[in-house]
Amino acid sequence: MQHLKDMSRMRLTIFRDHGWLLYSLVLRDLRGRYKGSFLGFFWTFLNPLLLMLTYTVVFGYFLQVNAPAYPAFILSGLLPWMWFSTALLQGSTSILEGASYVGKTIFPTPVLPLVPVLAGMVNYLLSLPLLLILLLFFKLPVGWGLLCFPVLLIIQTLLLCGLTMALSALSVTFRDTQHLLGHIVTILFFMMPIMYPLTAIPERARWIVEHNPLVGLFYGYQQIFYYGEVPHPQRLLWLFVFAVAVFYGGQVTFNRQSESFAEHI
């Protein structure tokens, strides 16, 4: 005889109890992403490729940003950014869009915000060959830093899961979240050294940007892929601690709100 579990609560055991469900929802998300389109899977490469070309023309050629091999530079930060922004925007509406299950049948609600994060990660990994080709093409030094890649991947996953849990829960009661989020994502993108190098920011203002943990994450990607450097271990550790804190915060926010999902949707 066990106490009835509250299905709407986010617990870490969700990965064990509903692993298959999560797996199949992620697979469905990936399959559905380009379903019915003529080029299908190739959009995984075409999307970043088209963005890369645009940024290269504007920043590499028109504005002459100080970053040699600009296509490789932009792509090393843009690919994880695309994962970040898409997961955030999709994740924030995940519970509202799950209205056909939430509160109507037996369904573990907390899997919903995790799906876009994990699907985005797979999509990111699949798009990596594009970057590797560019690295080889521009003969950039590939160093030991690449060994830090899994760490960055884990940090970003934790960070995103925390954020999507919090945002998806908030947007149920506070529907303005989605509208605000669109702007926040755009502002973040411009404020972070993804399409321009960190050195392009005036010395006096640099500290503001440097204290943004997200900058640390995306700069980490640039370090290992583009600069061929090894990220500072202390920085990685601090980023990891930050990501765990965000994950925990997201979980708490989610669980505070989750009791009322069934009543609000």
Partner: peptide, 13 residues
């Protein structure tokens, strides 16, 4: 079914 959370009381299944 665990879709709603009780305000008070206990359910075991």
């Amino acid at each position: 079914c665990g879709i709603l959370k009780p305000t008070s009381g206990r359910i075991a299944v």
